[in-house]
Nucleic acid binder design. Sequence first.
DNA 1: ACATGTATGTTGAATTTTCAACAGGAGAAT
DNA 2: ATTCTCCTGTTGAAAATTCAACATACATGT
Lengths: 227, 227
Amino acid sequence: MENYVVALQKCPLFHGISEQNLSSILRCLGAKVSSYSKKETILAEGTPAKYVGVVLSGAVQIIQDDYFGNRNIVTFIGPSELFGESFACAGVSAIPVSAIASEPAETLLIDCQKITHPCSQGCEFHQQLIHNLLKVMAEKNLIFHQKIAITSKRTTREKLLAYLMLQAQKNHSNTFEIPYSRQELADYLEVERSGLSVVISKLAKEGILETRQKTFKLIKPLPYPTA
Amino acid sequence: MENYVVALQKCPLFHGISEQNLSSILRCLGAKVSSYSKKETILAEGTPAKYVGVVLSGAVQIIQDDYFGNRNIVTFIGPSELFGESFACAGVSAIPVSAIASEPAETLLIDCQKITHPCSQGCEFHQQLIHNLLKVMAEKNLIFHQKIAITSKRTTREKLLAYLMLQAQKNHSNTFEIPYSRQELADYLEVERSGLSVVISKLAKEGILETRQKTFKLIKPLPYPTA
DNA sequence: ACATGTATGTTGAATTTTCAACAGGAGAAT
DNA sequence: ATTCTCCTGTTGAAAATTCAACATACATGT
């Protein structure tokens, strides 16, 4: 178990819980450590959503087979990251995806009810766990919402500007760094990399922005003060 | 307060809580009923995210001003619906949006901490409230995730097929009804209505689907080349 | 039956995006 | 310095989308 402490402490579900309390909490939660070889199924499609999973080592893929039987990778989950929590908390009776080990992996599986229902001993950490779980889901929600707000714009230009304006607001500055390379930015905006490059060049020519690598500067053509 | 019972009972946050318990719970939560005239601000941008709101009557808009000062409507919130819960649960120090009454409205504002932290009297309903809150956010999460999975496809055809295949899976049938008109479907898929019509006609000609109004039937041909 | 309004399908032109291919630059390794 | 690789910008052609406008179908109410 000692090997997992590092991964668990980085896991947002256990944030604020000290190392010495960890093992008693895990016992209280009935958490199970399991090992999987590559391609092995961790949670199978069609089964009830019961478990919240934490990747301890290796990596997990969430996959979904479509109507014609084509297998699609929905997400990669790395060490310390959670999976399955939305299905478990929403209480879906049959999960529409499978979780498989994309490489040899170890996971912690926790019955979600054990988190959301306080234990008989009135364990004081449930409070913290519930708070953490709420926070994780709320943050994901905000991230998703933001992404949808941006990618629902119809043109590359609009998507890019919506994204950049948001970054400028967050940084309280018209000069800021983004965490993406061009290819990653294109992926995030759901457009073609080369098309994105064209648009960036065009905006630069129009004097609307300046950029070098991951640094962007928005030049305001409107008389509004910098936020 | 009696006037609000209907709206509150439809609110997912209070699901499973009987009418006779409602008022004591609201007292325990320190819930405040407020009335707003049209355009009045309910929650102001830049303020700490503290409150979960429930619309009792009227309607609320979530608006966000972009970098250039343009006001964008993010969402409409109708009676019995929640707002602000993601910001409150994520604990953001300054909300990036404002909530305003788009028409005369009444809302219930609850300090989110009061929900997530059990009251001193060990009120038995906190359990239920927390469960409900988790469920609301988890369901939103799944809805967002699904929408992103669909709209991240690059062509209208791929988006439409991704959406329809998912509906077929959900209904365990290749014939099913969708909840959207053509215009609404186009909005959901984030494409042009007329373009969507063209694609639907084309798919019908190719013998891949049949449709009449909101009823669709997927005919299983060779799997179409994906991505 | 008729008029009306709304929803949907169709069309063609303009715009935008994708796609493939290539060119230049920065950095790393040798 | 040289080579190599990765990243980014550019280009032109093909494909897809948007946009405006119109045609048709369907439902509703009179």
